[in-house]
Nucleic acid binder design. Structure first.
Lengths: 208, 208
DNA sequence: CCAGAATACGAGCGATCATTCGCTTTTGGT
DNA sequence: ACCAAAAGCGAATGATCGCTCGTATTCTGG
């Protein structure tokens, strides 16, 4: 009759040693994604690189997807930590200053482990619809939307929804492309120039 | 001693029936990519959907990648066919007209089998560095670059290289995002509005 | 009409992968 | 010091996949 107690409930965890194992697994996953690509990131390989057995892996992560999701979450939090401070006073600043800061922050965000960011951006669609990066972009989007509403009278746009889409999409694409695909072209001064241009693009659009 | 003659040279082909087989295979690959996703596109499945045997598949395509590459090429050519006519007179037109046309063309291009386009855009990085879409973007890019050079005196930008990057990246991202991720939002009139905004964004940036 | 070339077939090989489970080792409370 | 729970282990399983190859069928030029 007694049945449930012996079955392993999966996924719960925490005793000092266990936390180290979990960290090692997430770290190993990230490293493999960057250095060997998504396809090479098999559960066996991840366990091997983490210096852990496959069995242990499955004690904490119910699937390979869960592992990748953990990597995504960790990366997201790292970005947040790096960027948050910059964004606190943006809402109260004038349009030109605010836009410049937002562009600069976007660049900074993409510079947090760019190689990992690239792999994740490319592979996330495949990992279920978890799409944590989507969530991130939503936050980004609604922040911008809020800013536009507060400064409505300084702007020459009617549809704030549409304007938000245009601005956020452009800034994201510009910085993403520059950092992740043309990082050799945009280094140092060239990146400053890119920030200038991005700022001019968006402010010119928002104002006259 | 005679060795080579019997070996199948692979990949060459053409007799009426064979061409139909090749078409069926490419078509089946495209359909599976759209309806079931990249992971489900196994060679066995492709052959099954094409109504053909795996053996036949490997007579014409040396690998699974070759099949995907063929789908990409076909899609590219379809886009070209749809768009080419619109681009012939762009070079001679004034900035505002030209930019508007380029934005509109970008939308049109993304509307050629959007679902296929999305899958390809998401999965292409994984298919070697063939990156035919890269090639396509290069063409796009150099066309724009050429336009800027010809109309240099009408513009208020110094670095044409940088300006091309900014404009092409923005237009591509705007239309890509709108058509492939927010197609429900941007239908009919909303899409016209998007074209207006994209045009204003870019012309405002290029001129005063 | 027929011989050889082209095309088509599909069972099967070897490799890889995600995941399981019976077992051993470590840990922490008492 | 002891022991139950927690953590760790890794060989084994079953499924899938890309791809090959010996054979059967169809086509075509003479």
């Amino acid at each position: 009759m007694a049945r449930a107690p012996v079955i392993k409930p999966r996924k719960i965890a925490s005793q000092e040693r266990a936390r180290a194992t979990v960290d090692a697994l997430v770290e190993a996953t990230a490293r493999i994604l960057v250095k060997e690509g998504f396809d090479k990131a098999s559960t066996n390989r991840i366990a091997e690189v983490a210096g852990v057995s496959v069995g242990s892996l499955y004690q904490y992560f119910p699937s390979k997807e869960a592992l990748v999701a953990a990597v995504i979450e960790r990366h997201q939090q790292e970005i947040m930590r790096t960027v948050q401070a910059e964004l606190t006073d943006v809402l109260t600043q004038p349009v030109d200053k605010a836009v410049r800061k937002l562009v600069a922050v976007a660049v900074t965000a993409h510079r947090v482990d760019p190689k990992l960011h690239r792999v994740l951006a490319e592979q996330i669609p495949r990992v279920g619809k978890l799409a944590k990066l989507e969530t991130f972009n939503r936050e980004n989007y609604s922040l911008f939307r809020t800013y536009l509403e507060r400064h409505r009278d300084e702007l020459r746009v009617n549809d704030l929804e549409l304007a938000s889409f245009v601005c956020v999409t452009s800034i994201e694409a510009l910085t993403h492309n520059a950092v992740l695909h043309y990082h050799n072209v945009f280094s140092g001064e060239a990146m400053d120039a890119l920030i200038d241009e991005g700022t001019r693009l968006v402010t010119g659009y928002l104002m006259g």
